[in-house]
Design a protein around this nucleic acid. Structure first.
Lengths: 101, 101
DNA sequence: AAAATCTATCGTATATTTGCGATAAACAAT
DNA sequence: ATTGTTTATCGCAAATATACGATAGATTTT
């Protein structure tokens, strides 16, 4: 991909909002987050049981949600407990709200 | 890409929310929408002047926003006037709001 | 020590996204 | 009729996303 200018500078809020939105841009990830909102927390395996995708695919979606900052995982051997990242969740909520006015 | 099951059925709201989120998942498109929120409407050329991308690239982003239902274009020869799609905008606002509770 | 459980990561294949320049299409003005 | 203006679309290239099976790593249980 070629870019005409080195790096366009959007505002930080714009970048952040786009990053959150991108992470939400897949029905599986929306579903995972809705599940987490209800359950408060869950293990990867719970989602594998619920969603019709392979373990590796679910794991990848979780990774993306984690990279976007929307969830966090605590090691709880041999499992990993995933929860919503409350702090960033609030930021996302605020950014979307103010975006839509 | 292989899919293990023919078609997963998410709820309509989940599908719709993901579709909106995906369209919002790029800083340029966020910027375009913020511009439209302020200006209420604009022409493609206005955005080409403001954003550091080629006319064809801007046009493509507008197409995606239109496909997602977030904006609409009225022909106003030889220009095209783009506005926020108020009805769908309200739906998006509601879906995001209830998603974040 | 061996087996079982759980999850991340690697490698691979395919689809989609993002960007550009060039061109086409639609209309207005000359 | 020709020219200019505006925008969409085509064709291309590179990057990213999505899915899978196989495997590796960590820890518990036996």
């Amino acid at each position: 991909m070629k870019r005409s200018l080195e790096h366009i500078q959007y505002t930080d809020d714009t970048e952040t909002l786009a990053r959150f939105a991108k992470a939400l841009g897949h029905p599986t990830r929306i579903t995972i987050l809705q599940y987490l909102e209800k359950q408060s927390c869950c293990f990867t395996g719970d989602l594998v049981d619920v969603l019709p995708f392979s373990q590796s695919t679910i794991s990848q979606h979780l990774k993306e949600l984690k990279n976007a900052g929307l969830i966090q995982g605590e090691v709880n051997p041999p499992k990993i407990k995933y929860c919503i990242h409350q702090e960033n969740w609030k930021i996302a909520k605020r950014l979307f709200k103010s975006f839509f006015e």
